[in-house]
Design a protein around this nucleic acid. Structure first.
Lengths: 248, 248
DNA sequence: CATAAACTTTGACACAGATCAACTGAAAGA
DNA sequence: TCTTTCAGTTGATCTGTGTCAAAGTTTATG
């Protein structure tokens, strides 16, 4: 299979779809120019493992297009997803030599990579990058803590409803749509990936999705295309208060 | 009950027990002087709620002495701990007006608080603070992701063993002791708090501790004083590989 | 077009951990 | 000293989710 996405890769930061949300969001023109010198694009196919936990990492970077997962695995194979990487999310940790998690592309993907060493140097010199990275890391920490509540205390049905509401919300904000009433989106994850995210088995995921469908909370076309007729009802099933736990 | 800890509060950053691990770790003398102008100490008694989720927060700060918990609660009362705050850990999020979690003192505590507005101003001007906060936040994110694996995929027995090994390890590094062979420490948490950390009920926590005791993995004096005769055996019970997942 | 491979659904049954309840021991207060 | 309260333990039973198995659907492949 030829990789057609390579030709679609942006050359210029000005045209970059994640220019104002990624780690470079606050950079000025001259800083972008500096970044440009240490950056390169890489494309990945759906299913491809981008990084193995424990591997040496000589780059960090941003997801430009597509979706990837961050997973942790035990020796006996039990797997837990610990992050879902969407466009503009950052991959890697400055100052660390080896990867702490597996990173796997779940769709075809494009990443904007920075060579690690020069990126670290730049970070110590240009506060705009470190500031933005701090902000993004704090957001991820909040998201991780939200997931700890989901994993530790919610029922299987609530877990599924929580995941659907998060995907629906992210989709809406990405498309600048309203976060009310009816919403339509495609699931970017297989049943197994959803199970790994939620600490369930894929059979339980399947059963709970069927149950939500039977109860009219969601509608399904095919296996992946979801319609949520009433977002507040979905939130209620997730056990969240109606504001969805959003913070200023 | 009179609060005797107030008199034991450090005045000077030079004498501060967390001077080299807290958010101020990288600050120079002049920066400490600036911080000194916006800081104040607060003491809390065991059991006291320091911050309610949703409350306005006009300070951020560091834990100097004692232990606190970060918890999230659902409307029906289900509670999940999302962080365990030990000396040097940071409380609050610069740039956010209201608290996202409940913060409760589990022991008598002393905090070094900074008025939020001037702290934010200082952060934007002195990279040393933002740099250190980024580093600490990345560490917390790693810890949160480690807990997601525990919550999502481990059995009750493995969860307890994981918690014990984390507490043992933290205790050892705090006391500069060896992380091998036999270790002795006091549990800083009630059975209920442990349950909230691990997504279990307190009965299950109690049963699993009894079981680990019966099997000789741990020894107990009273309810809280724990001896771990063989740390590697405890790690094996936790389902971790022997290196404990530590990263450079 | 046929077949394989990957993904998903559904059913039957088992079991880990929750729930409900009784009891123990230690600490605090009258 | 006696009672009350709080933290913890242990037992009996129930139930939500996992496990094992089979079959259906969709997508890829020769």
């Amino acid at each position: 299979m030829l990789n057609q996405t390579l030709t679609a890769v942006p050359r210029d930061c000005e045209d970059c779809p994640i220019r104002h949300r990624a780690v470079c969001a606050r950079c000025e023109a001259d800083e972008l120019e500096q970044l440009d010198k240490i950056k390169y694009y890489r494309s990945f196919e759906a299913g491809q493992t981008i990084i193995w936990s424990g591997d040496q990492m000589d780059f960090v970077g941003s997801v430009v297009k597509g979706i990837a997962t961050l997973t942790q695995t035990m020796e006996d194979g039990r797997t837990q997803m610990v992050g879902l990487l969407l466009p503009s999310d950052f991959v890697g940790r400055p100052g660390r030599g080896s990867a702490a998690y597996n990173v796997v592309a779940t769709t075809d993907m494009v990443m904007c990579c920075f060579r690690k060493k020069p990126f670290e140097v730049m970070m110590s010199q240009t506060p705009h990058i470190a500031q933005r990275l701090l902000e993004m890391t704090l957001d991820e920490l909040d998201a991780a803590r939200e997931w700890m509540l989901v994993l530790g205390r919610k029922t299987a049905r609530e877990k599924i409803a929580s995941l659907l509401s998060i995907i629906a919300r992210r989709n809406a904000t990405l498309n600048l749509a309203d976060v009310t009433g009816s919403m339509v989106f495609d699931l970017p994850l297989t049943r197994e990936a959803m199970a790994d995210y939620l600490g369930l088995t894929l059979e339980t995921v399947s059963r709970q999705i069927s149950s939500l469908k039977k109860d009219g909370i969601i509608q399904l076309e095919g296996k992946r295309h979801v319609t949520v007729p009433d977002f507040d009802r979905l939130l209620a099933e997730a056990g969240d208060d109606s504001d969805g736990g959003m913070l200023a």
